[in-house]
Design a binder for these strands. Structure first.
Lengths: 145, 145
DNA sequence: TGTGAATCATTCATATATTAACTAATTAGA
DNA sequence: TCTAATTAGTTAATATATGAATGATTCACA
């Protein structure tokens, strides 16, 4: 008798609802939404990404990404640059101001992450990821096994 | 060096993105959104809930719930009934049509859940829940320990 | 017993999610 | 080489999320 609250979607949603506020306080203090930070965070690892790549990394659907990039551009945190080789691609590049904000925030974001990690052992974290992967592994991949 | 994609929010978001499509196909076949189904699902266990109770159970924020209830009411799946004892409360009750839809869908929703559960052992599922609870336990509760 | 605090549902403004469709640019193949 | 199929980014329509504020009630309690 699976209870509603113990279903996989509800468990994951509830955890997200509990985890996000710690991050969101920091984002709001820097006038960013969760999603806007995700885009900057993706650009932290690689300063030169196309819109499609950012969508893949951040899990933000392309139609949403358009508005998010618009607002980041309006705040002068990123720039859009249409590719010359393949004119369908648009390269996203952080501005000076964007890089400065990222450098300001990254240590605090890492700190929040570390605080969560301290709640469990390294073995528990590994086990958690292993089971979650089994639970949510894409069906296509499963059929190959 | 915590990588972006391995952060708790991204891991949970990615899993949700992978799990939801299985459910969403069923919801769409019955002309429901994820959130609209959540409300009906809550009314499955208890056919008499106030708006605030539904918000707590479903994790749907009150401002969102207003519109969701509006649309369920327009589809004649639920009814709103203002309480006589405390006129601030609004009781939400499934209609005949709503109950019929719930009874039609519940077995299939349970089936999807069971399919996910078959991916892991009972021990793994328990361990998963235990670790996730440690990871996302509210701060207030943690301070009491 | 009156009055400020708390509660419930709601509205408002803005940002994002979802699905379908559309445009411009590129590629694949007959 | 020319057209059909693909791809990247975008627009459109509708639904939901988030945070602040409001209106109507009810509660706490001096």
């Amino acid at each position: 008798m699976p209870k509603f609250l113990d279903s996989l979607p509800m468990i994951l949603s509830r955890s997200l609802d509990r985890v996000m506020p710690s991050y969101r306080r920091l984002f709001q203090a820097n006038d960013l939404t969760d999603q806007q930070w995700r885009v900057l965070r993706a650009l932290w690892e690689k300063q030169h990404l196309t819109s499609a790549q950012i969508s893949q990394i951040t899990l933000l659907p392309p139609p949403s990404l358009v508005g998010i990039l618009d607002r980041l551009e309006k705040k002068n945190l990123i720039g859009r640059l249409r590719s010359t080789e393949d004119r369908r691609h648009v390269h996203i590049i952080p501005t000076q101001k964007g890089r400065a904000l990222m450098e300001h925030m990254m240590p605090m974001v890492d700190r929040i992450h570390d605080d969560f990690m301290q709640r469990v052992t390294a073995a528990e974290w590994a086990e958690f990821n292993r089971i979650l992967e089994k639970l949510s592994e894409p069906t296509e991949k499963r059929n190959l096994a």
